[in-house]
Design a protein around this nucleic acid. Sequence first.
DNA 1: CTGAAAGCGCTAACAC
DNA 2: GTGTTAGCGCTTTCAG
Lengths: 352, 352
Amino acid sequence: MPAKRPTDMRSPPTDVNVGTHNTTKAASINAVAEYAGVSIATVSRVLNSSKPVNAHTRERVEAAVEALGYRANMFARSLMRGESHLLLVLMPDFANPFFSETVKGIESVARRQGYNIVLSGAPDTLAREGHSLDILYNRLVDGVISLANYHDLPRVLRDVPNLPWVSCSEFNPESHVPHVSIDHEQAAVDAVQYLINRGHRRIALLGADENYAWARQRRAGYEMALRRAGLVIEPQLIRIARGTDYSFGMEAAGALLAQESPPTSVFAVSDTLAIGAIKAFRRAGRRVPEDIAVVGFDNIPLSQVFEPALTTIAQPMFELGAEAANLLLERLAGGAPGSRTLQHSLVVRESA
Amino acid sequence: MPAKRPTDMRSPPTDVNVGTHNTTKAASINAVAEYAGVSIATVSRVLNSSKPVNAHTRERVEAAVEALGYRANMFARSLMRGESHLLLVLMPDFANPFFSETVKGIESVARRQGYNIVLSGAPDTLAREGHSLDILYNRLVDGVISLANYHDLPRVLRDVPNLPWVSCSEFNPESHVPHVSIDHEQAAVDAVQYLINRGHRRIALLGADENYAWARQRRAGYEMALRRAGLVIEPQLIRIARGTDYSFGMEAAGALLAQESPPTSVFAVSDTLAIGAIKAFRRAGRRVPEDIAVVGFDNIPLSQVFEPALTTIAQPMFELGAEAANLLLERLAGGAPGSRTLQHSLVVRESA
DNA sequence: CTGAAAGCGCTAACAC
DNA sequence: GTGTTAGCGCTTTCAG
């Protein structure tokens, strides 16, 4: 029998976990209790610090836990406690950096509070595929943070037990579902007003799916700014993209250019759309911002790296997510905090 | 007592879920059994189609389920079955589109198979913050797909019960942990060889944290291509960025330019790095690709929209994620499939 | 301060 | 085809 080599910490340790299934059954609380010579109740107490335990007893239990590599079974614990410390995040679009940044914020505060994130596609996507939010129905999660639009919510919510629910970015002013968001309408007014101040009169809107409240609100802001300036709202200057991918921005921008008297500037309701549009404009031989100015929305990381750097409305994406998580967590803790509106700002760079 | 108004389905239904906590206790299987006048075993049978049930009885049960709005409690079910249908995804960087696309692939196949995704930051991040992967230790999840690097894995894996584990993109050739990935080294050879074919002799490497195996492998490919062409490897032409954000690309590219005899081209191991580099080059008055050519890696969605459009190595990001999920799921189903290597390709566009 | 015992809601033998 | 029963692993009274 060869001598056991000391473990080399630098060697790949990974071969440990090749098994397809757990072979050795994990130690239960009973095993720990037996090993330590106490009752399972006592083990539970030291595990949760729920009741004072004699220092000496505690040490014995802790030693047993250590020796057996014991970890509490979450299913059993959750079954008793009725909570999982899992938060569901409804994510409409993994590809859009806005959502990535927001999830980052959510994850950050959730983890700090001992919660984990379950990620799911948006309800409408699920519905389209004939899936339902089983995970939600089944109360696996303690609460939900939704980045999805409200349009499909009715269907989802109808059967859902009243589960704490928070909306992020998206919100319905008429509803009482708490949300964290910026003032989309005012932000759009700011963006368009900036264009007006720069002398633009023919300002196009590159909009998004109006199932999203923010898309409607930004459009409303666009129209309001125009109206205030005494400009007419020309329907042919309003283009709703079929999605927020770069490609949809290009597509919609192309349509804008095809008109007899094209705009001198465009307000895109998303940076990804704006970037796609700029690409399309340049392909068509237009210079940005000289021939056509564009302002975006979100201030995604790329917007300052892109050329021309984007003039855009900055949303505090990370904070939006973080605050949404805070809001939900506070509710789970029994509080009843209200919605929060975070500040946006116009970042002027090169594209307008 | 006012007459009960019929529910208006078009009105915002969202006010239903404002409560901070479930007020009405959800119906249990007992309630359903009682309501239907059968035993809980029968209810369980119709719920899971695990054993034949008299058609008439089944209908009664289904009616009861419907009437009570019953949903199985996942905790209890998981406790019995010993599985949660939850997959943990270890995500190093939410901001990098490569990871977003990959997660998209994972989510897509996982959902189709009835699994949900728990998202967690990378182990190294967690460790830095003093957290451990409790969720993993506690066997909440059935398996894990890791996009994280191997460097910090030892620490993580040591205490982890042997949980099915799959690596995506990242892999250690010496380990037996199954993975799905492209051949990073060959891909790098292809990229650099392309540059060489275009007449470049002074080719820089914009590398990434070599705790990642792929970073080491791509560097190895870079060096191999150079060596094969009889070119010397100049250490000052190799720059390791501090991260993969655009900003780190700019930073590292700046250092490259500061040299007495700067490169005529650079191979960046990530599109985000490449884009940051191009930005830096232009700021310094260099034209891309005329003065300095750059080829990236990944083929993120942005790479074709960026100007100049990126010449890059295309990784099948979505498929990488999808295959990783398939691999894991097959293992969970009792199989023992091996690693898979997917195909990469060089996409020639404008930047080189 | 500690132990015994009663479940949490479900699945899976095992009887009938 | 259906009911009874024994747990899964944990938390939590309730006694002592």
